[in-house]
Design a protein around this nucleic acid. Structure first.
Length: 566
RNA sequence: GCAUCUAUAGCUCAGUUGGAUAGAGCGCUCCCCUCCUAAGGGAGAGGCCACAGGUUCGAUUCCUGUUAGGUGCACCA
């Protein structure tokens, strides 16, 4: 497709003595009546010692319009460019039609991206606090892949630590009281809370728990079997949710996987001479790089800590995958931890890998009543949220479209869209307050709104026998403001996807899809499509088809599936 | 105490890397289905962009300070 921005930049560069590529200075005016692209001349004022409007005026004289840029105007200190709308629609529609996967790209070819996301703890419930990491990771995974990157999804399970020694002790004591085949997570959770309390009361039990963990590490068959059982039961439960959300991973290597790979980390760091001793522990001091808390590599009792295992993971991943980027989608609570291990990683792996480590941190999810706590039991479980939302979706369907055939299937898609969109639509950096009213809202800027818009395009397309051929289209009929808005958005799609990967921010895609759905709704309300004069109908149908495709692929990249009707 | 993030309409949030008149959704007041799905569209009310300085031709955006809140600060993950 024609790169309008670049074309304009070229023209400006040709007309001036500016060495630097001016593409990055070109902006989009706030209102399309002021043109499609603008070049602000303010920064030139100093160098040229002239007022910005004068510079703009002189520039205008030197730049001629052509097939691509039809009009150039001076307004204040801005030079405004108007592009050929017919060309825009021709380009956009042709590209969308001919390309089965519009927006897909190969810019990522040859690069490998690891994404570490979801990472629930074994034997603990999967609550809405895990939703953000799971859905952000899933969306980034899909977008990177769509742009041609070799993408590896990793679920770094929390499957290691003294807590499992406690679990084993709990099972030894009360295993016969619990039927773990039914509702295993809650039973395990119950057992965990119970044994935790007992450990606090009775030092001997805690001692026994530590011993169990030691045995587990040493490969004691009883402990290992039990640990596997807890893990299997948990994964089975987690995959109920993953399957519904259509989330999957290429690797389930969790903490335990790296437990026997920490020795080499210590060895390398020791060779590099960065290990020191402090209060009995082995640490890497990070004072010099402005981090006042050292990174502990070995505890005073000689055993390793999660930081060591995370470092072992970095080493392993660098060797196994030769990654270009490794993203950690983890809440900002762990900002310091990642700062520390990324710093230490510089001593451990090549610069290429150390530079590729990125913490994609996101805000916490809290309830209106305050922070969630598994221990206090005031968590909203993902399963409950999903069931509740799908139920609400079904209610609305029964009310609005009682004759719809596959209500359950549609309700599932709509409910999940509401959840996914709600989770991904706000900037990851901020905290989110979970509110049932917002979660169950299906109007306005929501997942269902995007689906609804899609269904309307679908319904228009169903009414015609054959899609018109782009070569027979008179693109000049799409010159109204509504068509123009839609076309410009479709034109931007690939750029939006690139931005998502540059900022590792799915909300950019979410906002974009809302903008596109809105633009199409405006178009749809103002323009009749079927039953218009043939050339108008054909052009509008083709535009509708393109919107249909972009909405479907865009939503698909977020993990949202489209119903045919709703 | 130190570090770090956040502060934009009553509520939830956008704001294209410093640009033109600060936008949207929810809620509120109206209007639009004999017409392709009204889960939609349109109009209106609603703002000291937390506060005070600074840099700049220009600041919601960058810097400093203040205030309020979140989070983290050594052997848990």
């Amino acid at each position: 497709m024609i790169d309008f921005k670049k074309h304009i930049a070229q023209k400006i560069n040709n007309a001036t003595q500016i060495d630097e590529d001016v593409t990055k200075y070109i902006e989009i005016p706030p209102d399309s009546s002021m043109g499609d692209y603008a070049f602000p001349c303010f920064s030139l004022a100093k160098v040229m010692r002239k007022a910005p409007p004068v510079i703009a005026g002189e520039l205008k004289e030197k730049i001629e319009s052509d097939d691509i840029v039809t009009k150039i105007e001076v307004k204040g200190g801005y030079l405004n460019f108007y592009i050929n709308k017919e060309l825009l629609s021709k380009e956009v529609l042709n590209e969308t039609i001919k390309n089965n996967e519009y927006g897909k790209s190969n810019i990522g070819n040859g690069k490998t991206i690891l994404i570490d996301y979801s990472a629930p703890n074994i034997a603990k419930p999967f609550h809405i606090g895990h939703l953000r990491t799971t859905l952000i990771g899933n969306c980034l995974y899909k977008v990177y892949k769509y742009l041609g990157y070799n993408t590896v999804g990793i679920n770094h399970l929390g499957d290691y630590g003294t807590q499992f020694g406690k679990m084993i002790e709990g099972y030894k004591l009360w295993g016969n009281e619990y039927d773990l085949e039914v509702d295993p997570i809650n039973k395990m959770m119950d057992m965990y809370v119970r044994i935790n309390n007992l450990c606090k009361e009775d030092e001997k039990v805690l001692e026994q728990a530590r011993e169990n963990f030691r045995l587990l590490e040493a490969g004691d068959p009883y402990c290992v079997d039990l640990w596997n059982k807890f893990k299997d039961l948990s994964l089975k439960e987690f995959y109920k949710i993953y399957d519904i959300l259509d989330v999957d991973f290429d690797s389930l290597n969790g903490e335990a996987f790296y437990a026997d790979k920490t020795d080499e980390v210590v060895e390398i760091l020791d060779k590099r001479g960065v290990l020191t001793e402090s209060e009995g522990a082995t640490i890497v001091d990070l004072e010099d790089v402005g981090i006042s808390t050292p990174c502990i590599i070995k505890k005073a009792n000689g055993s390793t800590i999660y930081a060591t295992r995370d470092l072992a993971a970095i080493l392993y991943r660098a060797r196994t995958y030769d990654f270009d980027k490794c993203l950690y989608v983890v809440a900002y609570e762990q900002n310091l931890h990642f700062k520390q291990i990324f710093e230490v990683a510089k001593y451990l792996v090549d610069e290429k890998y150390a530079k590729g480590l990125i913490h994609v941190s996101y805000g916490m999810v809290a309830l209106p009543t305050g922070k969630m706590s598994t221990r206090l039991g005031n968590v909203v479980k993902i399963e409950d949220l999903i069931n509740e939302t799908i139920g609400k979706a079904k209610e609305i369907i029964s009310e609005k479209n009682p004759d719809l055939e596959n209500k359950d299937e549609v309700a599932k898609k709509v409910g999940l869209a509401a959840i996914i969109f709600n989770t991904l639509s706000t900037t990851a950096n901020k905290d989110q307050i979970f509110d049932w009213n917002t979660a169950l809202n299906f109007q306005g800027e929501t997942g269902p709104y995007i689906q609804y818009t899609y269904v309307r395009t679908k319904s228009v397309l169903d009414k015609i026998d054959e899609l018109p051929k782009p070569k027979d289209i008179d693109f000049s009929v799409l010159s109204d403001i509504h068509s123009e808005n839609v076309l410009k958005l479709i034109y931007n799609f690939e750029d939006v996807l690139v931005q998502v990967t540059e900022k590792n921010e799915p909300a950019i895609l979410a906002r974009y899809l809302i903008d596109l759905a809105k633009a199409y709704s405006g178009f749809y309300n103002e323009n009749k499509i079927i039953g218009e004069e043939k050339k108008v109908q054909d052009a509008r149908i083709l535009l509708t088809y393109c919107v249909n495709k972009v909405l479907e692929t865009g939503a698909g990249l977020m993990g949202i599936k489209m119903p045919e009707k709703m």
